[in-house]
Computed example of a mutant assay.
Amino acid sequence: MSVRLPSVRSALSLATASVLALSLAACGGTTKESAENNNGSNSGSKATANPNAPIKEGLKLAFLPKQINNPYSTIVNKSGIEAAKEFKGEAKEVGPSDASASSQVSYINTLVQQGHDAILIAANDPNAVCGPLNQARSRNIKIVAYDSDTDKSCRDIFINQASSEEIGRSQVKLLSDQIGGEGEIAILSATANATNQNTWIEFMKDELKKPEYSGMKLVKVAYGDDDDQKSFQQTQGLLQAYPNLKGIISPTTVGIAAAARYISSSQYKGKVVVTGLGTPNQMRKFVKDGTVAQFALWNPEDLGYLASYAAAALSSGQITGAEGEKFTAGRLGERTIGADGEVILGPPFTFDKGNIDDFDF
């Protein structure tokens, strides 16, 4: 069970990060077809929000992660599925076993055929899924991107775990503080096409241009494809290719755990700093054995929960995805939609030896 201390919740929201739009259950006697005609859809008429509309009962939501059996995605989606029960909806998780650019397309097509009210997707590629998603939208199926965005023209709303800029820049600062602002560094990412990873990395590169980081040099961006073994091998390759490497940032839960596992049993332990984005449960042993001093994340349970309620609000007509609209996300309270249909969960939270045992997720 996750520990939810009030002070931590304010920092994480309880653990912040992009407000994931989850499909909410539709309530009332309006059919999907009549809702299409009355509320409009992305295929024609301009939709109008009714903030006083009740959440519809019986909404069908589907979570489509980058890949199934990823520990982080499992936590996010399980929480979203549980949230749907609060508004008397149904939710499920489907998805590919690999995180290739086009691997999600067939799942989107199937979900459209099954008549879901909302599809919640963490996109492997911002463009590869656009055609199928817009086909879904033409049938008044709401699209909530979470964790990793699509092109904004292909979805209704994006639940972002935290400000992309804040995530990217804070990762550089976290590593700089641990290596004294000096030395060669590398980034171990997920897939080369992952929208969230690439956005964070661009902000990392921009942050490194600041004078205070002039002693740090980014020598390589490697890709482990969110595969444990490949990420482990990429870590080994980085250390062999760059013997003077001082630190690795891995902004993916699979990558940071694999990198820490390699370094924990190698000659580099205590010499090469590993940081990035991970969950407390997967990183606890590496923090306690001294391999990792600090890393960051938001609460993935809150991300899935928020996404589910966002999807419900969309499917019920409470919001359309326009900037300034508001909706209530259960225990997380009222949320406001920002520019480009983005909802932000909150700022990233830093875990270390002093607080990691306060969390269980």
Rank of each mutant, 00 (worst) to 15 (best):
residue 78 K to N: 14
residue 314 L to A: 02
residue 267 Q to F: 05
residue 44 G to F: 05
residue 188 L to Q: 01
residue 263 I to A: 06
residue 6 P to H: 04
residue 206 D to L: 10
residue 90 E to W: 06
residue 132 P to I: 00
residue 262 Y to Q: 08
residue 157 I to L: 15
residue 204 M to T: 00
residue 152 K to F: 08
residue 26 A to G: 07
residue 255 G to R: 04
residue 218 L to T: 06
residue 108 I to L: 05
residue 249 I to D: 01
residue 330 G to S: 13
residue 144 V to H: 08
residue 185 I to K: 02
residue 195 T to K: 15
residue 322 A to H: 05
residue 255 G to F: 09
residue 41 S to F: 12
residue 289 D to P: 04
residue 183 G to A: 09
residue 112 V to P: 11
residue 214 S to V: 06
residue 80 G to E: 06
residue 306 L to N: 05
residue 216 M to C: 08
residue 213 Y to G: 03
residue 171 Q to H: 11
residue 100 S to M: 10
residue 229 Q to L: 13
residue 34 S to V: 09
residue 218 L to A: 13
residue 108 I to K: 00
residue 318 Q to V: 01
residue 271 K to I: 10
residue 326 K to Q: 13
residue 336 T to P: 03
residue 343 V to L: 03
residue 61 L to R: 04
residue 338 G to D: 08
residue 54 P to Y: 04
residue 16 T to G: 15
residue 111 L to N: 00
residue 3 V to S: 13
residue 132 P to D: 00
residue 109 N to Q: 14
residue 342 E to G: 11
residue 223 Y to G: 01
residue 216 M to W: 05
residue 211 P to G: 05
residue 328 T to A: 09
residue 60 K to N: 12
residue 346 G to H: 00
residue 111 L to G: 03
residue 357 D to M: 14
residue 183 G to V: 01
residue 156 D to E: 10
residue 276 G to E: 06
residue 223 Y to I: 02
residue 202 E to V: 08
residue 57 E to W: 12
residue 124 N to K: 00
residue 54 P to W: 00
residue 121 I to K: 03
residue 341 G to C: 10
residue 271 K to Q: 15
residue 254 V to P: 05
residue 359 F to G: 00
residue 250 S to M: 09
residue 348 P to N: 09
residue 133 L to D: 00
residue 58 G to F: 02
residue 61 L to K: 04
residue 225 D to R: 05
residue 37 N to L: 10
residue 115 G to M: 04
residue 24 L to A: 11
residue 181 G to W: 14
residue 207 E to I: 02
residue 192 A to E: 15
residue 308 S to C: 06
residue 152 K to C: 02
residue 310 A to Y: 02
residue 11 A to W: 10
residue 256 I to W: 02
residue 329 A to N: 05
residue 204 M to K: 02
residue 22 L to P: 13
residue 117 D to C: 13
residue 143 I to Y: 00
residue 239 L to I: 06
residue 37 N to I: 10
residue 110 T to M: 14
residue 194 A to D: 08
residue 282 Q to R: 15
residue 28 G to I: 09
residue 273 V to D: 05
residue 193 N to V: 13
residue 359 F to M: 05
residue 52 N to R: 14
residue 263 I to K: 03
residue 328 T to E: 09
residue 193 N to K: 15
residue 62 A to D: 04
residue 11 A to G: 15
residue 290 G to A: 08
residue 1 M to F: 10
residue 267 Q to T: 11
residue 182 E to I: 15
residue 78 K to P: 03
residue 20 L to R: 11
residue 27 C to A: 15
residue 53 A to F: 14
residue 253 T to G: 15
